[in-house]
Amino acid sequence: MHLSHFSAALVFALFASIVFGITQRNDARSMLRYGAYCFALFVGGVIAGGWFLWLLKH
């Protein structure tokens, strides 16, 4: 199986966010919101990190 770096990061973000949401909040609505927040931070971090490295290279 050949995942790209980005798709591997997306899969990682998805599953880690699910577990974070379930374990760090008490009710279903807060779990969903916190999971989505973590997912956004993971993906945002990947994109920001990617652009930062691009800027370093150029």
Binding site: V11, F12, F15, V19, I22
Partner: peptide, 13 residues
């Protein structure tokens, strides 16, 4: 179920 799927899927990957 969600925890099972998440952990097992990461392991399978």
């Amino acid at each position: 179920l969600l925890l099972f799927v998440s952990v097992v899927a990461m392991f399978a990957l």
